[in-house]
Design a protein around this nucleic acid. Structure first.
Length: 592
RNA sequence: GGGGUGUUAGCUCAGUUGGUUAGAGCGCCGGCCUGUCACGUCGGAGGUCGUGGGUUCAAGUCCCAUACAUCCCGCCA
C-alpha cells in the first residue's frame, strides 16, 4: 500500500509498514533515532519516520563490532539507515501499543547518515513546550506525529476540495499577489515598487475583485487555494497570512452557491472520515442574533438567549425598566448547573460582561436545595418573577445571567457568557455542527464615523425589493449573503455580487464614497460591470480554521507549517528583518 | 490602542512572610546491564531567576519601566 514511498530513496520499507507477514525478509529502513535503549549486550533502537516507528535490535552476534559500537553511541534524532532481517517477536515481547509491535528488525548493518545535537524539546506528541520555542525550531516540531497528522489532514482537505470542484467544472486560476490597495477593509501589507518611486502594491486581503473580473472574463466557474494577507492584530484563529478556498460562479443565485458548497463540503468531510448530515440548516441572520447573540453560533449546545424585555418593562429594577422603555433589550441565558456557584464566582463573570461592553451584570441563582439568591429579586413583583422564571424554564441548580443594553451589546455580552459557561460547566460539544447563517443586513451604521458601511462587503447583491431602501432606509436592506458556520466559527462566507454598474454605484455612494472616489478606486469594477458582467456569486472558505476544527486544535497555528507569533514575527527565520540602506534607497524609502 | 496571564536549568515547573549554597521531574554526560519498548541502575554536569532601574543590611520574591509570549476587547469590509 505504501510501496510508492519506497521508490527513489534509500530504504525499501517505511518505518510504519512491516508486519508479521514480512518475517524473514531482508529489508532496509531509514529514519530518525527516536528512543535508544542500550542494555549493554543488546541495544534496541526505535527508528521513526513519518509513517511510524519500528524497533531495531543490535545483537553483537549479528553485526560487526564497529556497527555495534556505532549503535552504542547513537542519540536522539540521529539519522540512520539500517539493513537487517524482519524477525517475529516472542509472545511476551510483542508490543500491542505499536503498529509494528509484532516484529522487529535484527540489524546486520548500520549507516549513520547524519548526527544530531540534543533537540531542544522532545519529539513526541502531547508536549507542553512553549509555542515560541516550537516555532523557533519548527522543523523538528514538524517531526512530531501530531504535526504531521495535521499537515496530512490539511492536504487531504485541499485535495478533496480540488477534486470536488474539478468534477463540477471549476477552473483553478491564480490571481496576483502584488495587487492594489483597497480603500475599505483591513489594513494592507504594502510592497514598494522600485520602478515606480513612491508607489506601492498591496498584498491581497482576498482575491475578491480578481475573481469577479474572472466572471466578467467568462471563466464561469473559478476556484483557488488563495493566500490572503491582512495587517491586523492576531488571534488564535487569525494569522497575518492565511489561506482561503476561494470560489466564484456565474449565472447563479444564492441557493445554488450554497447547494454547490454543501456538495463540496460533503465529499470533503467524507474524505477525512467526518460524518455530517446534509442539507444544512439555513438560519436567518436575525434568528441567529436573537437566539445566540452572534452570527456564528455554536449550535452543538443550547443555553439560548431569552428576550425578557416585555416582562421587565415596568418592573421595579430601574436598570431593566429604563433600558426596556428606552429602546434597549433585556435578555438572559440560563446556565444550568451553576446555581450553587459562590457569589464570588458569579460576580467574576461580570468581568467577561464588561469586556464585551456591559456596564454591569445582573444574576439570579437557584440553588439545588431550592433557595433563590440574587441582589435583584426584591425588585420584582410576584407576577413578574413568575413570568421570568417561566420564560427562562427555571429549575433548581440554575443560574440566570442578564444583559440589559442595546441589542448589539446585550447580544455580544450574552454570547460571550454563553460560551464561557459552556466551557466552565464542561457542557459536551462533541462532533461538528455546520449550518448556514443567511441574509445579513446589507449595511451597518459605524457609530464612530456616523457613516454606513457594508456588513459583508459593498459588492453584495441586495434583493430587488430592497433597492429603494438603499437611500431611504439602508439599515433595512437585506442582502444575498451566506456564512458557513462550523462549531461556533465562521468557516466561510459568501455573497451574490452586484453585476450592474448602476446598483454598484448606488451602494458605494451609500458607503460614503463620492462619484469621483468611485471612479478612482472602483473604476475598473464599474467598467467591468458595464461590459456584460453575468450574474455571479461565490464563497470563500477559511481553510486554516476548517482544518483546525477538523483536527480538534485550538489554534490555526497548529495546522500551518510555518506560522507567526502574535506580533506577526517568525522566530525561526527572524522575519520581519531589517533591510540595508541600499535596498531602501532602491525603492525610494527613508526610515523615520 | 486597551485588559488579563506568564517569563526561574535544554524542556515542564516548584520556590513560604524579603534571609544560608535557588530545587524537582524529564532530558543531557559518564559507568554498569542480553528482551527493553517512558528500559533499569549508580554517579555527574548544567542557572546573569526576560531586561533595565529602584526600595532594603539583604530581592527569584516588593515597586517602577520595558521586551517577548499567550488569551481577550477594539480591529479583522
Amino acid at each position: 500500500m505504501t510501496d510508492y514511498l519506497n521508490e527513489y530513496c534509500m530504504h525499501d520499507h517505511t518505518c510504519g509498514e512491516l508486519r508479521s507477514d514480512a518475517v524473514g525478509d531482508e529489508v532496509t529502513l531509514a529514519g530518525w533515532v527516536w528512543h535508544n535503549r542500550d542494555h549493554g549486550g543488546l541495544i534496541f533502537v526505535d527508528l521513526r519516520d513519518r509513517e511510524g516507528y519500528t524497533q531495531c535490535v543490535f545483537d553483537p552476534d549479528c553485526v560487526s563490532e564497529a556497527d555495534f559500537h556505532t549503535a552504542e553511541h547513537l542519540a536522539r534524532e540521529w539519522v540512520i539507515q539500517v539493513r537487517g532481517t524482519v524477525r517475529a517477536r516472542d509472545d511476551e515481547a510483542v508490543n500491542p501499543n505499536m503498529a509494528t509491535g509484532q516484529i522487529e528488525i535484527l540489524v546486520s548493518a548500520i549507516t549513520v547518515l547524519n548526527t544530531s545535537v540534543t533537540p531542544p524539546f522532545a519529539i513526541e506528541d502531547g508536549i507542553e513546550t512553549d509555542e515560541t520555542t516550537r516555532m523557533k525550531w519548527r522543523y523538528i516540531d514538524l517531526r512530531r506525529p501530531e504535526m504531521y497528522d495535521a499537515l496530512l489532514l490539511r492536504h487531504k482537505v485541499t485535495r478533496a476540495m480540488r477534486a470536488a470542484l474539478d468534477e463540477r467544472g471549476f477552473l483553478e486560476v491564480e490571481t496576483p499577489i502584488l495587487a492594489n490597495s483597497t480603500p475599505e477593509g483591513a489594513r494592507d501589507y504594502i510592497v514598494p515598487s522600485r520602478p515606480n518611486p513612491g508607489r506601492f502594491y498591496a498584498l491581497p486581503q482576498s482575491p475578491q475583485q480578481f475573481k469577479q473580473m474572472l466572471m466578467v472574463g467568462g471563466i464561469e466557474r473559478y476556484y483557488q487555494i488563495a493566500r490572503c494577507f491582512r495587517d491586523e492584530d492576531l488571534r488564535a484563529d487569525r494569522q497575518p497570512e492565511f489561506t482561503q478556498v476561494d470560489i466564484e460562479m456565474s449565472f447563479v443565485e444564492n441557493e445554488e452557491v450554497m447547494d454547490m458548497m454543501e456538495d463540496v463540503m460533503a465529499s470533503t468531510l467524507e474524505a477525512v472520515g467526518v460524518t455530517h448530515s446534509f442539507p444544512l440548516q439555513r438560519m436567518q441572520w436575525k434568528e441567529a442574533m436573537d437566539r445566540f447573540g452572534c452570527d456564528r453560533p455554536d449550535v452543538r449546545f443550547g443555553m439560548e438567549l431569552v428576550d425578557l424585555t416585555d416582562i421587565v418593562r415596568d418592573c421595579g429594577f430601574k436598570v431593566f425598566s429604563s433600558v426596556a422603555q428606552g429602546g434597549g433589550v433585556v435578555k438572559a441565558i440560563n446556565a444550568k448547573g451553576a446555581g450553587d456557584w459562590s457569589r464570588g464566582e458569579v460576580e467574576k463573570l461580570a468581568d467577561i460582561a464588561a469586556a464585551n461592553g456591559a456596564k454591569g451584570m445582573a444574576w439570579i441563582a437557584f440553588t439545588t436545595d431550592g433557595k433563590e439568591k440574587s441582589p435583584i429579586i426584591k425588585f420584582f413583583s410576584d407576577e413578574e418573577f413568575a413570568a421570568l422564571k417561566k420564560a427562562m424554564d427555571v429549575e433548581p441548580g440554575d443560574l440566570l445571567l442578564f444583559a440589559a443594553d442595546t441589542f448589539d451589546t446585550a447580544s455580544a455580552v450574552l454570547a460571550a457568557l454563553r460560551l464561557h459557561m459552556a466551557e466552565a460547566l464542561d457542557i459536551p460539544r462533541e462532533g461538528h455542527a455546520l449550518l448556514w447563517v443567511v441574509n445579513f443586513p446589507m449595511f451597518r451604521l459605524d457609530e464612530e464615523t456616523g457613516k454606513y458601511a457594508a456588513e459583508h462587503h459593498p459588492f453584495t447583491m441586495i434583493p430587488e425589493s430592497d433597492w429603494d431602501k438603499i437611500e431611504t432606509a439602508p439599515l433595512e436592506c437585506g442582502s444575498y449573503s451566506y456564512d458557513l458556520v462550523m462549531d461556533g466559527f465562521e468557516a466561510g462566507g459568501g455573497t451574490i455580487r452586484i453585476h450592474t454598474a448602476d446598483l454598484q454605484r448606488r451602494v458605494l455612494r451609500r458607503c460614503g464614497l463620492t462619484d469621483e472616489e468611485i471612479d478612482v478606486k472602483f473604476g475598473h469594477l464599474i467598467h467591468a460591470l458595464e461590459l456584460g458582467a453575468p450574474p455571479h456569486g461565490g464563497i470563500a472558505l477559511g481553510l486554516d480554521r476548517l482544518v483546525m476544527l477538523l483536527a480538534g486544535k485550538d489554534s490555526i497555528r497548529d495546522v500551518i507549517a510555518f506560522p507567526k507569533t502574535s506580533s506577526a514575527a517568525d522566530p525561526m527565520t527572524g522575519a520581519p528583518g531589517e533591510v540595508s540602506g541600499r535596498q531602501l534607497k532602491e525603492v525610494s524609502l527613508r526610515l523615520l
